[in-house]
Design a protein around this nucleic acid. Structure first.
Ligand SMILES: [Mn+2]
Ligand SMILES: [Mn+2]
Ligand SMILES: [Zn+2]
Ligand SMILES: [Zn+2]
Lengths: 150, 150
DNA sequence: CTGAAATTGAAAATCATTTTCAATTATACT
DNA sequence: AGTATAATTGAAAATGATTTTCAATTTCAG
């Protein structure tokens, strides 16, 4: 985590942004937290321990965190912007449960390769991609079957 | 298109919804239009020829069109809900140009197969998925290279 | 220290989406 | 056709996440 903090400070200086207590608190809260949180999630978390930080500051700091490559936006189709840790994390895709909302991070090198090929076939220069599979997780699949039986 | 209209009417009756001129006008505009339009897009299009239809009606009718299986929502990551024709259209994924905003519909059966396998490997029951590859289309790739040369 | 420039937080603005409600319309039934 | 009733309509307001404004405060280079 120290590495991320130093990287963040370096990036701030690089862009003539100031290293403030608020920004550091917000970054630390983000790094410590479970992943995939919205601005509002993080704001509430911080509020519990420190009510001195405003929503706008959390919002703005999250934008900086994204720009510095420490976070990336994930989109679960509910129109809410959520962030996950990016630094030191490899690319992955998601399995998202339609019932309980839990998600699983997955990676398949064969799919990744075919995605590259597919793009090239269309003379398209791929930069990034997003693959989300929606369905029912093991637990929810079971409970759905049980419901149907009743 | 007549087939879609009949299907729509049948669905309306099935759900005790009324067949109104507004609903039919909106459906026709949707079916005739280029794909991937937002509620606002469609509202503006309709307004050009018929200023008697309110935004709320377009909005509500689009919801019905989705429910009847004539449209599906596509998500290009800009938080705007857009619809594309669904009836008689096969599943496909998208290549989306980061520069000009154009998109290309693609389908790769090998990827689809691997997606199924990946889900199963995680005991996950897949229902639908979304795969979007963002990058630069052929034209934009060229113009970017030219810019860099200058 | 000091001053210029950046930051902060409360509040307001924005913007797509969704709901409300009184007036209007579609439809089933005389 | 006329009537009852239940659904629909459109303007306007509400919503909710996101983004901006601005006066007061803080950072930090010199
Ligand atoms: Mn991937
Ligand atoms: Mn696919
Ligand atoms: Zn589940
Ligand atoms: Zn392009």
């Amino acid at each position: 985590m120290q590495k991320e903090i130093e990287l963040f400070k370096a990036q701030l200086r690089k862009y003539n942004l100031k290293v403030t207590q608020q920004r550091l608190k917000i970054l630390e809260a983000f790094l410590k937290a479970e992943r995939h949180l919205s601005c509002d999630d993080l704001y509430r978390m911080i509020r519990r321990h420190n009510s001195e930080i405003g929503y706008a500051t959390v919002y703005r700091t999250l934008k900086i965190i994204q720009k510095t490559g420490l976070a990336r936006e994930v989109d679960f189709g509910d129109k809410i912007s959520r962030l996950e840790h990016e630094y030191g994390h490899k690319h992955h895709d998601h399995l998202i449960c339609l019932k309980c909302g839990r998600f699983f991070e997955v990676f398949d090198p064969d799919i990744e390769l075919l995605q590259e090929k597919l793009a090239r076939k269309h003379k398209f220069n791929p930069i990034r991609h997003k693959m989300d599979i929606f369905g029912y997780c093991r637990k929810c699949s079971q409970s759905i079957n049980q419901t149907q039986r009743m």
